[in-house]
């Protein structure tokens, strides 16, 4: 896995809120080479801000994740996107919007989503 210019200096880990919470984190993946924290990230990007080598940690993390088994919530959210275009269930969307006094929204045609995401969901990077 290409870590680019990462030297494993650990600067990112000092700012990583997941690491400071005592969990395996993407910064541990970078610094220690373990895969355990690849899915544990709050997307705060302090690591990116702190990195002295400007490593593209977002791309590194995403490529790493594509080779690993996803947590159930990630898998379900991606399945929702692939089948409906939205990560959350929105079956009663316009009924709820009417109660709030919001206008009706036309949902995306799932056929369009299938054309945009034509892969199987687990692609090589």
């Amino acid at each position: 896995m290409d870590k680019g210019k990462c030297t494993g200096c650990g600067e990112c880990r000092q700012y990583c809120i997941v690491a400071r919470a005592g969990c395996a984190s993407i910064t541990a993946v970078l610094c220690d080479g373990s895969d355990a924290g690849a899915w544990n990230c709050t997307n705060c990007w302090k690591c990116v801000e702190a990195c002295p080598e400007d490593v593209d940690i977002f791309t590194f993390m995403m490529k790493k994740r594509r080779k690993l088994e996803p947590p159930a919530h990630y898998r379900q959210s991606y399945e929702n996107i692939r089948h409906t275009g939205y990560s959350m269930p929105i079956e009663d969307l316009n009924t709820i919007r009417e109660i709030w006094g919001l206008g009706e929204i036309r949902k995306v045609d799932p056929v369009k989503i299938r054309k945009l995401l034509s892969g199987t969901g687990r692609r090589r990077s």
Partner: peptide, 10 residues
């Protein structure tokens, strides 16, 4: 979001 990039470069 960070969901789709976790699965595909599409």
């Amino acid at each position: 979001s960070s969901i789709a990039p976790s699965f595909t470069n599409e």
